[in-house]
Write a protein that binds this DNA or RNA. Structure first.
Lengths: 246, 246
DNA sequence: CAGTGGTCTAGACCACTCG
DNA sequence: GAGTGGTCTAGACCACTGC
């Protein structure tokens, strides 16, 4: 797989971000768009695109008539909720070198114990439709941090997945062996108490309050292809968010 | 205060969004950018800007070479976490007509019972610096939904705020009577158990798991100007989020 | 291969901030 | 009033999708 050259805009964005992280703008002020365009030898539009993306990320803010400025407090944050895609990547962003353990795998059907009616409904499944059930644990230094339970209809895969492949991020498996790719999740954030196997697997006291994600994953055609429940150890992994003025 | 005419891009965005919500694209396919530009009598750039914002909101997705498509599942969601600014607006988005009650107001100082050391540190306060403490409850039909505790340094206000003005959203008060405006919050999402006055005021059983926001608000110069703790009744208000592929 | 969105340019004018 | 970011145009070429 050959890598294509990144677009000019991407290069400009990376370049400016590097300058920021290297502390090249000690007063927090970023040069004018025209100036950047001339120095970098690109059009102002390209610079504006790049700055626009940095602003979306929260790294900078722009004020008409005043200038463009670095948002230091935002850059201090290691990873924000909006930027989470795979849990592996999130943990790495927190400075961890996570390992993954597949706790349980089952080929089962909609309507079984492991697949509740809510799950079947979210995935548009009929009773007895075959599904894959995968329960994974993400650990840092043998300490469990995240527990994730996934349900996927069998039809999304073009072939059976090897047991040891299931360690890999599920979106990767879908990219390689799936009929469609994972495009986005719609997630509900639910407060729960750790009980039974959740407290056991996460090695925390039963009754500890936890954040849980109840989410459905969709492909580019907006068809649901995965249902997932996750649990986070708040003492090890604090979820963060930037809320801006609309 | 006169309202300025919205930009062309804004108008195009609103127009397309309206067409989507009116179900004018039953197959989920949005016309080509060139076609939209011609029909609306604007340049393709303007159309692209508008579509870009709709894509950011999650309302549509674009695929190079294929076309632009409506994201139905995302449009079903009433309000997403990223889009929350004021709690009043969030509750309204959920179809509520919320009322606000100021539970407690106090003029106190950093270091007092009401202002913990974490709060003072986040706001860069020295001991005995004067602060305003406001505890507010947001209700729907007399049922409490959100409890919010705010601490602001006295210096951010140019004058004393009337008691009955405190019902209003705090960012509005800062707009009108503040030295600087609220620009963004950095928020930590924390799972907690309802205890003491939180369970009392929210009228839920002690020990109920809750989502809480532990957040610091910054102005455009990245100075912290407010510290806030909020608690949400999950049974009445479920927080949602869209997680996309990066 | 026709049609789509993605990238990029050069230039114009406007709205706003700040000294 | 000088300088900043915000808006908008017209046009070119490229990369990709799907028939």
């Amino acid at each position: 797989m050959l890598k294509r050259a990144p677009s000019l805009t991407d290069q400009v964005k990376s370049h400016i971000k590097e300058l920021i992280l290297n502390g090249e703008f000690p007063d927090g002020r970023i040069p004018a768009e025209m100036e950047l365009a001339e120095v970098l030898g690109v059009s102002r539009t390209t610079v504006r695109d790049a700055l626009g993306r940095l602003e979306m990320e929260g790294a900078i803010n722009r004020r008409q008539g005043a200038g463009t400025f670095v948002n230091d407090p935002v850059l201090q944050i290691r990873s924000r909720l909006e930027e989470i895609w795979s849990y592996e990547a999130m943990l790495q962003a927190h400075g961890f070198a996570p390992s993954t353990v597949v706790v349980e795998v089952a080929s089962t059907t909609a309507g079984s114990d492991m697949v509740g009616s809510g799950t079947a409904e979210a995935l548009n499944l009929e009773a007895h439709d075959p599904v894959l059930f995968v329960k994974k644990l993400f650990l840092e230094n043998d300490v469990p941090v995240i527990l994730a339970c996934n349900v996927l209809p069998d039809w999304v895969f073009t072939r059976v997945i090897d047991q040891d492949e299931l360690k890999r991020p599920i979106y990767e498996l879908l990219d390689e062996y799936g009929l469609s790719r994972l495009s986005y999740y719609l997630t509900e954030i639910v407060p729960v108490l750790a009980v039974d196997d959740v407290s056991d697997l996460l090695q925390i006291a039963p009754g500890t309050p936890l954040i849980s994600f109840d989410e459905t994953g969709y492909d580019a055609d907006n068809h649901p292809i995965i249902k997932s429940y996750s649990y986070f150890r708040d003492d090890l992994l604090r979820l963060r968010l930037m809320r801006r003025r609309v």
